[in-house]
Computed example of a mutant assay.
Amino acid sequence: MLDRIKASLPSLAPAEQRVGRLVLADPRAFANLPITELANRSHVSKPTVVRFCRSMGYDGLSDFKLKLAGSVSEGVPFIHRSVDADDKTGDVLVKVIDNTVAAFLKYRNDASTTALEKATQALLATYNSGKRIEFFGVGNSGIVAQDAQHKFFRLGITSIAYSDGHMQVMSASLLGPGDCVVVISNSGRTRDLMDACDIARKNGATTIVITVTGSPLAAAGHIHLAANHPEGYDRYSPMVSRLMHLMIIDILATCVALRIGAKLQPLLKEMKNNLRNKRYA
């Protein structure tokens, strides 16, 4: 959590940066002080303290303090163990798994359930109205978008995935009120995805963005699902962040399936029965 705040500081407003520096200076004190004292020590207004917490992806000051206290006390530490050229296979195994497990546990502590609930409700509303759900991503995120389309398709939901920038812009131009687009990006700075997201939002579609906090894309959607993991982009293609995106899609698909309810069971059962014919006995 503290690593995320430190990484996000440059993208925040100057007043919010002062609040962030106060957190980093003494996280335990921040978690226990009242909002008036926090505002005084940061030389900002009380609403600015709350805005900082929301900019970091939390529901408000109370939610931020709760997650901060948990992060400091129970300490699911951020582990980023870089692989080296002379690492043995066993070393690579341990480092890759440690990075992934630590990132997942960190996400469990940091995730905004309010944002996930809003995204679930938006997807469910689109399903109930018979409108379209679309998934946009490029590169590694394009593969996640295809996986998302597969999961929602199995629920009987009209959905499609695009990984080509031109197709995304064309499709976004055809979306309208009631439709929903989920934009997935590791960096949150891909121009094609920004363009498509802006067009879809302008046309009245609900936009859900899965990306890093503080990025341009994070501010472009109606609903931001934060996926924060400081990964070395220069050496290897994103690995842990891609797995986090897949996990978030799994959470959304599961939540939507549960809200659809019992009428989904016969469909899934028939699908399984029909697939049995595709397998050797």
Rank of each mutant, 00 (worst) to 15 (best):
A200M: 05
A200I: 00
A200C: 10
A200Y: 07
K202L: 06
G204L: 06
T207W: 14
T207G: 11
V209F: 00
V209K: 01
I210Q: 00
I210D: 01
T211Q: 02
V212A: 14
V212T: 15
T213H: 08
G214K: 00
G214R: 02
G214V: 04
G214N: 03
S215R: 08
S215M: 13
P216T: 01
P216M: 01
L217V: 03
A219R: 12
G221I: 02
H224V: 10
H224Q: 15
L225P: 02
L225Q: 02
A226L: 01
A227E: 11
A227W: 01
A227V: 14
N228E: 14
N228C: 11
N228G: 10
H229L: 14
H229D: 15
P230Q: 04
P230S: 09
P230K: 06
E231A: 13
G232V: 14
Y233V: 08
Y233K: 04
R235G: 12
R235F: 13
R235D: 15
R235A: 14
Y236F: 08
Y236Q: 03
S237R: 11
M239G: 11
M239H: 13
V240M: 08
V240N: 01
S241W: 07
R242G: 13
R242K: 14
L243D: 15
M244Q: 10
M244N: 04
M244P: 05
H245I: 00
H245P: 08
L246V: 07
L246G: 11
L246K: 07
M247K: 09
I248S: 10
D250W: 06
D250T: 07
I251F: 14
L252R: 09
L252D: 01
L252M: 05
L252S: 06
T254I: 11
T254Y: 13
C255P: 03
C255M: 11
V256T: 03
V256F: 02
A257N: 09
L258G: 09
R259K: 07
R259T: 03
I260N: 05
G261M: 06
A262M: 10
K263M: 13
K263V: 13
L264D: 12
L264Q: 05
L264W: 09
Q265G: 01
P266D: 04
L267T: 12
L268P: 10
L268Q: 15
E270W: 00
E270M: 13
E270H: 05
E270N: 13
K272W: 11
K272F: 08
N273I: 12
N273P: 09
N274D: 12
L275V: 05
L275F: 03
R276T: 11
N277W: 04
K278Y: 04
K278A: 00
K278W: 03
